[in-house]
């Protein structure tokens, strides 16, 4: 592996101060399960790594008024949190199928988002849950909707010196159901396609619909056009078939070692449809 220096700041200020001093030649490292692989593969060549592990402000999981997660929260902790399993099952499900147990013991939710893979399993559930990311850097603090966070494969709206500090999710409304689904070649593989749905039902009619699909475009997608079709209607088989067709129109997948573009298209429509059905079953 290429040589690099290693810093372990104890505070955020110290962390982005170091990043400024190192003139952008350093990388922040959270769990490291992506960064270390990319350094080994020669895709990243940092002069230094700045570890975020000792910064206590980035830790902690609370759910008093909605859910608030420090960006350094481990997938293992999200997967095992009983309140997340009860109130935000789409997020718990995504956390429990991300990579493998060894990776989940080290990988963090903030790291997964900042790595900005179009297939990031944490993204679709956070999209349908309308998560807000708190970002901090030398210029101060700002909040960004998860929808505006991703810019392209591996690219986010973060400045080089900025760190995602927290991820917050609004409180769950009554009558809400949600689900996350993923298709991969084997259990631990990166998604061929993934999807999440969130539905609010009142008197049998869908009052709110949030849909997201991953690994089928340069960024994780919110499917707003389709949400608009579902809202205000009764969710019936004809409508779901139409949704699956519309998903195929709205995605723009690539062909790679895991799947052809055509398969991704077809399967993402089916995943969204199934996720809506599952969300509906849970909305009761």
């Amino acid at each position: 592996m290429k040589k690099f220096d290693y810093y372990q700041p104890e505070s955020l200020k110290e962390a982005y101060g170091l990043m400024e001093k190192l003139n952008g030649e350093a990388r922040f490292i959270a769990g490291g399960t992506d960064v270390i692989v990319r350094i080994k593969q020669g895709a990243l060549h940092p002069d230094a790594l700045i570890s975020l592990r000792r910064i206590s402000a980035l830790k902690g999981l609370g759910n008093e008024d909605g859910l608030s997660m420090g960006s350094m929260t481990l997938f293992r902790d999200i997967e095992r949190d009983p309140a997340i399993a009860r109130d935000y099952p789409a997020l718990g499900e995504a956390a429990s199928v991300l990579a493998n147990p060894q990776v989940r013991n080290v990988a963090t939710i903030g790291g997964n988002l900042c790595n900005a893979a179009p297939s990031a399993d944490a993204a679709p559930p956070l999209m349908v849950l309308e998560a807000t990311l708190t970002i901090e850097g030398p210029g101060g603090q700002r909040e960004v909707s998860i929808e505006d966070f991703f810019r392209g494969p591996g690219e986010t709206c973060l400045e080089h010196t900025e760190v995602v500090t927290r991820i917050t999710i609004p409180k769950k409304r009554k009558g809400t159901g949600m689900a996350f689904l993923k298709i991969g070649r084997v259990a631990q593989d990166i998604a061929i396609a993934n999807a999440a749905a969130l539905i609010v039902v009142e008197n049998g009619v869908c009052r709110k619909c949030r849909l997201s699909a991953g690994a089928v475009a340069p960024v994780p997608l919110r499917l707003k056009r389709i949400e608009g079709i579902v809202e205000g209607r009764k969710i019936e088989p004809d409508l779901l078939d139409r949704v699956a067709e519309m998903v195929q129109e709205d995605v723009s997948p690539i062909t790679d070692v895991r799947s052809t573009a055509q398969y991704r298209k077809t399967v993402s429509g089916i995943l969204v449809k199934r996720a809506i059905k599952e969300a509906l079953d849970r909305a009761g």
Partner: peptide, 10 residues
Amino acid sequence: GKPVNSCLVL
């Protein structure tokens, strides 16, 4: 107490 991949831990 938790299994990890030692190739991904510095």
